[in-house]
């Protein structure tokens, strides 16, 4: 932690902030779904502390513990198994996991290339788009209507994934052209 404060690059700090923010957003969602308020120990304070700990120690077992606790807590407090809120909750957990994976492998002081942000964000968006489709199928199979927000979420995820893919392809072509010339 001391190394992060002393030598952390702006990108690394941003990454840690993203991890903390996604964890805290999940915590807020958990508190909302549980209707226990933001001072409840099990649905607010524990996941919030876990989010901050995951941001500070992304290499250790903290993210694993935080994610396991998040899944169990969600299933415990959420009564509606087909709730729309499951989708943003899944997105926050995905961001937390991906952010921890990136923060664990990147040197604390080194800046992170922009291309890496785009590539990883595109992948996360693609994975999330598939998750949204799966959730919509589950709703259709059980004969429940799909809310309009789910379509907006799907479109946004697909658009982000396509943009990231196009950017990656463009960079690769440019690299090949430069090396050929």
């Amino acid at each position: 932690m001391r190394q992060l404060i002393r030598h952390g690059s702006a990108a690394q700090l941003l990454l840690r902030g993203l991890i903390a923010l996604s964890g805290l957003s999940f915590t807020a969602l958990l508190a909302l779904v549980s209707e226990r308020g933001i001072t409840d120990f099990w649905t607010a304070l524990v996941p919030a502390a876990g989010s901050l700990a995951a941001a500070l120690w992304p290499r250790d077992l903290v993210p694993l513990s935080m994610l396991a606790y998040a899944v169990i807590a969600w299933v415990s407090v959420n009564d509606d198994a087909r709730s729309f809120w499951t989708l943003p909750a899944a997105a926050f957990l995905l961001i937390l996991h991906t952010g921890c994976a990136a923060a664990a492998v990147l040197p604390v002081a080194a800046p992170v290339p922009t291309q890496l942000w785009i590539r990883w964000a595109g992948r996360a968006a693609a994975v999330f788009a598939v998750t949204v489709v799966a959730w919509m199928l589950a709703r259709v199979v059980s004969g429940v209507l799909i809310p309009g927000a789910a379509f907006i979420l799907l479109a946004a995820a697909l658009l982000a994934a396509a943009a990231a893919l196009a950017h990656t392809r463009w960079v690769r072509i440019r690299v090949v052209q430069v090396s050929a010339s």
Binding site: V71, V75, A81, R123, A124, V127, V130, W135, A138
Partner: peptide, 21 residues
């Protein structure tokens, strides 16, 4: 495991991105 044991499809949705990743 939770989805199968507790018949909770939302648990499946919650971990689906990690499984896909």
């Amino acid at each position: 495991f939770i989805a199968l044991v507790a018949a909770r499809p939302d648990a499946l949705i919650l971990v689906a991105p990690l499984a896909l990743a």
